[in-house]
Nucleic acid binder design. Structure first.
Lengths: 104, 104
DNA sequence: AAGGAATATTCTTGTAAGGGAATATTTAAA
DNA sequence: TTTAAATATTCCCTTACAAGAATATTCCTT
C-alpha cells in the first residue's frame, strides 16, 4: 500500500479520527484519551497501534504510562499529495466540451 | 459523519484511490476506468457511486455513457483541514520535556 | 516481595463492505 | 421495434475489522 493509502486508511476510521483531533491539543496518555472519548482502554490501545504503525503518532514511554503525540510527516505528505491536484482544478477541466466532441 | 471523514473514507479504499488517480488525467467513462484498472464494470460502478456520494466525482451523462470527472471541493476542504495542523508542528510540540515535568 | 495502575495483547463475535454473477435500465443503432 | 452496448443495481458470499471480555505485561509503590 502506498504511503498515502496507509495514512488515509488510518484516518478514515471515526474513532481514530477523533483521537487525532484530540491529540492536536497536545500529547496524551492512553487513559486520558479513553476518558475523553468515552472509549474502553483496549480499543484505544488498538487504535493507537494502527495510528502508530502508520506513522501518524509516536510513543514516549514514561514509567508505566505511554504518551502519544502526533507526528507531522504523514500529514505533510498527504498534503503534498493533495497539492498535486491543484493544477488540475485550474487547467485541464472545464474543457469537457472538447473532450466530448472527440468521443462522438 | 463530518465532511472530512466522508472524504477520507471514500479515498481510503485502494481501488477508489486508483480511480481518483486515474481521473486526474481527465474525465473518463466507466468502461475506460474498468479497462485501465482491470476491474469489472459493476465494481467500478459501485466504487464510483461511493465517490459520487462523497462529492469527489461528478457525472455527466452522454447518451448511454457516463463520464466521470473529479470535483475539486472535497480535495480543497481536506487540504484545509490538513492545513489547520500546520501551527502544531511549529509551536506546541517539541516541548514534550516540559509537559512531562508537569506530569510527574 | 506483593499488590496495584496503566497499557498491550489475544480471542471471540458481530457487522460493514467489497467482489462475483446475474439482472435491470437506458440509449443508440439497425 | 428489435438488438446491442454501456451502465447501474441486486443478491449472495466472503473477508476485514471494530468492539467486548479476559488476560498478559510492565512499572511503580508500599
Amino acid at each position: 500500500m502506498g504511503e498515502q493509502l496507509t495514512t488515509l486508511h488510518a484516518l478514515a476510521e471515526p474513532n481514530r479520527f477523533h483521537i487525532v483531533e484530540l491529540l492536536r491539543v497536545g500529547p496524551l496518555t492512553v487513559g486520558e484519551i479513553a476518558d475523553s472519548l468515552k472509549l474502553r482502554q483496549p480499543q484505544v490501545s488498538k487504535h493507537l497501534r494502527v495510528l502508530s504503525d502508520s506513522g501518524l503518532v509516536e510513543v514516549q514511554p514514561i514509567a508505566n504510562r505511554r504518551i502519544y503525540k502526533l507526528q507531522s510527516q504523514p500529514f505533510l505528505e498527504l498534503e503534498e499529495w493533495l497539492d498535486t491536484f491543484r493544477n488540475i482544478w485550474e487547467d485541464r477541466f472545464d474543457r469537457l466540451d472538447e473532450y466530448l466532441k472527440d468521443m462522438k
